[in-house]
Design a protein around this nucleic acid. Structure first.
Lengths: 203, 203
DNA sequence: TAATTCGGATACCGAAGGTATTTGGAAGTT
DNA sequence: AACTTCCAAATACCTTCGGTATCCGAATTA
């Protein structure tokens, strides 16, 4: 392996730390993951971590943004496919199973959001911004879906998107607490919603 | 004030600590509230706290159970009144505003649940038990309400109760993060649900 | 009144986030 | 090529906090 320049070396360190932090944060959560553990698992000292990320909050936020970006990407892929309505619903169900059904992810996002809300108004606003982005993306998907199916939804899409997002968060949290909980509440509610729109306002 | 026996004195200390802990936990959350702060705010030493509650988790769990009992009591009062359907819906809206709309409570319950889920399987199960109790209470109320209005709900009441509970949790969390969020998503969804049942299966 | 029990106080420990300082090697200068 | 500069990373250390061990003194009991 060729000798690295200082910038390359630092970038590599940063990436290694990020990947390690991601694994640990998702596995153990925010509070149970220590900077020392991240450093050690990545083969560095704590100083290396603090030299690349100002605080634990920064590191965790970077991890969360990376994971969230992937999830958003995947839900768009799932919903924008060319299949039938049923196929898209199935793709969404699979997506929600992978995302909401993943306790590590759900718990981490909620844990960090709560931590931010309590500790630092600026960080809370950044996290809330992420929430609005989610809501906006959902709204877009809802509108596309309504257009494709040629139906009018019984509530404004913004309100529905907020409700669906909240439902997903709540379901994810409760399933993380109690794995016995039914897994398909979200898809069945969405089906109900589409059903309702259908009957009510089909053109 | 008469001299207290030792048992009375300890009970008084315990109540004082519980009340103080409740105030602090609701105001600052689980992690930001320290045993030392609780002790000092109540006018005792840390030793007094640990002499009455084995761990911080025990103390917080006791607080949460007390608050939750009050909320359950209040939602039953709101829904079991003798008013019309609209009045009951208004009472529920007021209840949800006071409960879900209270960031301190919502954040604390979620924060503690997540903490329990990550740290201690036994504690997680106890918290999950509380969740099932909530869900069961909601289911009861839904069934009563459906009976009173003489309509059949479009999904099993257990599933609906789970969904409503999850929605409430998610909405509460998101509102705590972003106060700009619409406050009446929950009532408007319930209205929609009743509406749908009404149209679909009125006898 | 003397002995005992026990609620609460005090002293201390280890872990964790964060800071100050040091060091070793890459980049720049002559 | 030798020397200086600079900065990523290492090390040492600080504070805070949950928890434990020990101690004290007042209420209880013999």
């Amino acid at each position: 392996m060729a000798r690295l320049t200082r910038a390359e070396s630092q970038a590599r360190t940063r990436e290694l730390l990020l990947a390690t932090a991601r694994r640990l944060f998702l596995r153990d959560g925010y509070h149970a993951t220590t900077m020392e553990k991240v450093a050690e698992a990545a083969g560095f000292s704590k100083g290396a971590v603090y030299s690349n990320f100002a605080t634990k909050d920064e590191l965790c936020h970077a991890v969360i943004e990376a994971v969230r970006a992937e999830h958003v990407q995947r839900i768009f892929e799932a919903f924008r496919g060319e299949g039938s309505g049923e196929e898209r619903l199935a793709a969404f169900t699979a997506w929600s199973e992978r995302t909401i059904g993943d306790p590590g992810w759900t718990l981490l996002e909620a844990e960090f959001a709560i931590h931010a809300a309590r500790r630092d108004p600026a960080l809370r606003d950044r996290v809330a911004q992420g929430g609005r982005a989610w809501s906006g993306a959902l709204r877009l998907l809802l509108e596309e879906e309504a257009r494709r199916r040629d139906l009018t939804l019984p509530l404004p899409t913004a309100e529905l998107a907020d409700a669906l997002l909240s439902l997903g968060i709540g379901l994810g949290l409760r399933r993380a607490m109690d794995p016995a909980l039914s897994a398909n509440a979200l898809p069945s509610l969405i089906r109900l919603l589409l059903d309702f729109s259908d009957r009510r306002e089909r053109k």
